[in-house]
Computed example of a mutant assay.
Amino acid sequence: MRRFLTAVLACLGITATALVATPAYATGFSTYGSGVNVRSDAYLSSAVVRTLSGPTSIDVDCQKHGDRVSNSDGTSEWWAHVPALGGYVTVVYISVPEDKLPGVPECGTDNPPPADGDITLADVQAMFGTRIANPSIVETGLPSLNQAMRDANINTPYRKAAFLATLVHESRLEYNIREIGDTRLYGGRGYIQLTGDFNYGPAGQYFGIDLLGNPDLAMSLQWSAPIARWYWTVARNINPYADNLDMGRVNAAIGYPAGAEDQRRCDSFKNAIRYLTGSVPSGVICTRPSPLKGDTSKLTRTQFDALAKNGGGLG
């Protein structure tokens, strides 16, 4: 009801804030409510570029599928790109009855998205060889996985190598895989093999989906890659370890006890770096500091960060 009333007011030109000159290619709408964030991208983890103090007239040039946002009026996974504000506003706070803006094109549909830097099936086969056991499944998931990497700023050879080496050992880079023999309700699923109600619960809350009630969503094409991105950047902060070539801490952050698997993953990390850069740099760290040799899977991010710091190296 509030969205409808605000839409009527917007049609009459009654808004708290107005923006100048509607570009010819844009469509005018109005937000409602106060404290609505404008983010740099269509994800709740993206930086807030400004906050709207009240209902605001906006000119939208395209809309993008992103994180789900809910309020008392509804739910939407669509975000409006507002050039004048330099970012995206969730459609759930735009005064329209629909959950996707009518008459507004999807961002990037006029031109194919840039492929520069995207990982291909040939790339991962060259990096990891026979670990790519089901190429067709891997290839099907790669568009969503590449998007997740962009969203997580996994945009350097070291970060890509660490992320892909982790996932190839967790899931063989198959988005829909279930941990073999694991019959637990919240056993390993998806790219990152999400495990435990202590992960399913927060991940579901982050995306606005009921992962506790429907854990198989974690191995769906829609959610497997975003959940891997969530774990890499929200449940843990793993990119800095990759930047330092510290595969020991990367492995600890994934949450299993130290052992022979650490070296296998480190070897895959080196193979990926060699493929991406042409050589393996000196200084790759394959072992963990003592505080991180146990099972760290149930630690909060704060607890893990404290142990990782106490182990020396970063920070």
Rank of each mutant, 00 (worst) to 15 (best):
P215C: 06
G74H: 02
D61C: 10
D262A: 08
E139K: 13
A252H: 06
W78M: 11
G181D: 06
V69R: 13
T287G: 08
P291W: 03
L314W: 15
G196Y: 13
A18L: 09
R229P: 00
P226V: 14
G33V: 04
S72V: 11
G13C: 09
G313K: 12
L245S: 04
G103E: 06
N146W: 07
T109C: 04
G248R: 01
S171A: 09
P135M: 11
G255Y: 13
R189M: 13
V96L: 05
V8L: 15
D67G: 08
L101S: 06
V36E: 06
R50Q: 15
V49G: 03
V234F: 11
P105G: 04
A306P: 00
K293T: 15
Y175D: 01
I180N: 10
A306W: 02
C266S: 12
S279V: 04
A115N: 09
G213E: 07
E106L: 11
R131W: 02
R3M: 09
F29W: 00
R131Y: 02
I209Y: 01
G141A: 04
L52W: 01
D182L: 13
G66N: 09
D110F: 15
A218M: 09
R39L: 04
V138D: 04
R236L: 07
A84L: 12
G87R: 08
G33Y: 09
M149L: 12
G181T: 14
H169N: 14
V124G: 01
I177E: 08
